[in-house]
């Protein structure tokens, strides 16, 4: 699915990613954990194509193509989805209207016909039920006046609508109460398949009780310094990150 090799990235001249390597195969769920400032959100931003970040070295292969060569929208059209840590409020832009445009631009990109209004609305009903997002909320302005939990559910709703190959969830769990967390995780799990993959970026082990990862990676100072199974997350939760520093003599 995605092969990241020796990725270096800077913002305002400051290097944040310092040689990151990661491979995610179809069907897998990877968790990335790490202390504040380790570069977790930078990784998500670089993969999504945020222009403030400059990639200074390394490569990212996405399903056989050079991801870094693509514009943000083309990455999305090729099947990459980023669930934002802070979803943006866009007054006046209807959630479903923009999704319909997005879906149809993606379909056009793939040489497919536009989705009919009827099929689109059926999909809206099905997917909004999946994340228990009120259908009325789904058709309001994007995130405007949404609670924190509603915004995150809306991210997963959009993900469900767009059916990406690779989803990156950037701290989707932050700020969620346990009910909202369960709903969001449930949505993600239902979308899981052998052809898709996800990268879950999180601070907290709690999310991983609901979205069970195949691999847990520790990101520290711009590199992945340790990889393990889901038990690594528990260990991190219990002991913090200091032991890893000691173990690896960082």
């Amino acid at each position: 699915m995605i092969i990241i090799k020796n990725l270096h990235a800077t913002i305002d001249g400051k290097e944040i990613l310092k040689g990151l390597n990661l491979e995610v195969k179809a069907g897998e769920t990877h968790a990335i954990m790490g202390p504040n400032g380790a570069g977790k959100s930078t990784l998500a931003s670089v993969l999504a194509g945020r222009e403030e970040y400059e990639v200074t070295d390394g490569s990212v292969d996405f399903n056989g193509g050079d991801l870094l060569d693509l514009d943000t929208e083309d990455r999305a059209r090729e099947g990459l989805f980023l669930a934002f840590q802070y979803p943006v409020e866009i007054p006046g832009v209807s959630n479903v209207n923009f999704l319909r445009s997005a879906i149809n631009e993606i379909r056009e990109h793939k040489g497919e016909e536009a989705l009919s209004a009827k099929d689109f609305m059926a999909r809206v009903r099905e997917k909004s039920a999946l994340v228990e997002l009120d259908a009325k909320l789904a058709s309001r302005s994007v995130n405007e006046g949404f609670s924190g939990g509603e915004k995150k559910r809306n991210e997963i709703f959009q993900m469900a609508m767009l059916e990406p190959k690779l989803a990156i969830l950037d701290e989707t769990d932050s700020g969620l109460d346990i009910d909202a967390l369960r709903i969001v995780a449930n949505g993600v799990n239902k979308l899981k398949s052998n052809d898709t993959a996800s990268i879950v970026i999180t601070h907290y082990q709690r999310l991983l009780d609901y979205i069970v990862p195949d691999f847990v990676h520790v990101l520290y100072e711009g590199k992945i310094v340790k990889t393990g199974g889901k038990e690594l997350a528990l260990e991190l939760e219990e002991k913090g990150y200091d032991w890893i520093k000691e173990e690896l003599a960082l």
Partner: peptide, 9 residues
């Protein structure tokens, strides 16, 4: 950026 990240040009 948010809209582009959803596939809109």
């Amino acid at each position: 950026f948010y809209l582009r990240a959803r596939g809109l040009s």
